[in-house]
Nucleic acid binder design. Structure first.
Lengths: 149, 149
DNA sequence: CACGAAGTGAGAACTGTTCTCACTTAGGAG
DNA sequence: CTCCTAAGTGAGAACAGTTCTCACTTCGTG
């Protein structure tokens, strides 16, 4: 643990991630691990990582912590992989979407690429688009460089 | 059954929907019901509808038929609702997306509204978007008219 | 018509996620 | 600081959607 003398509540990351929800020792451990996750992760991934330093932590606790972080608006679902939700920390509050790197799993925020002119074409046919959900897959800049593309 | 004298293979819709997969009596029944489904439907929805005319049909058979139709390219997943996949018949082979009407569940094809200029902005940052997945929610023309919007 | 591959029904199994329940604990009130 | 209680925890059961297994049936090619 980076801050062996810190009580759970002292951990800066915890209140950042969990908002004003109560911070237990388990959630403090989770708050330390979450920023270390590279790219999108599943609940199972997170459980494995947290359990490495906090053995015995229950998967249900992970799910409850995830729900708390999502409620606090610090964790978002960015897609899915093999039937499990893919999660990522996200502190942007503007309208945007996420590019999930198919090589390394990293997630990067992307400006909304919806062309509203095209949507208006749909509206000319009488439809009305009220919301959209976009998941982008591709290569992040790191992997793109590495592949020399 | 509307066509009591037709053998399963005679049913025009079946080969259309299932491609060159074998057409059993159950699949013929499914092929009759699928075009009657209004809007997107779940496997459970389809099972209920088919079971109304073919009692005893097994849910696993429905799932296998869905897989066969997806393989034949006639049925696509257009979103999800309460954790179940939302399916719809789709014979378009060009690149497009689907608008799921939040009022009636109808699904309409929509031109891809991705603004490639914006995506190129992402590429300027070094990323590369290779594929995208879009689900649009809103009101279809029928429901929009009905609501007088 | 015969035969083999494909489909079926019934129900078990699987997977990701949520719930229940008894117990513990964080953290504000006094 | 101590109490109190609402919130969090662990263990495991429950759940829902989906897939699999297995013995049996059936389509449709040869």
């Amino acid at each position: 643990m980076p801050h062996p003398h810190a009580t759970p509540a002292d951990c800066a990351g915890a209140t950042t991630l969990f908002g004003r929800a109560r911070v237990s020792a388990q959630r403090a451990a989770i708050a330390e691990v979450v920023p270390l996750m590279r790219g999108a992760f599943t609940a199972e991934d997170l459980h494995r990582s947290v359990a490495a330093r906090t053995p015995g932590i229950c998967l249900a606790t992970i799910y409850r912590a995830i729900a708390a972080m999502q409620e606090a608006g610090t964790l978002v679902t960015v897609g899915e992989r093999d039937g499990s939700a893919l999660l990522a920390v996200c502190v942007r509050h503007d309208h945007h979407h996420h590019l999930v790197c198919t090589a390394c799993g990293r997630v990067v925020g992307i400006e909304c690429p919806i062309d509203h002119a095209t949507l208006r074409a749909a509206e000319r046919e009488g439809h009305l688009v009220t919301s959209h959900q976009i998941v982008l897959y591709g290569l992040c800049s790191h992997c793109r460089q590495r592949e020399g593309a």
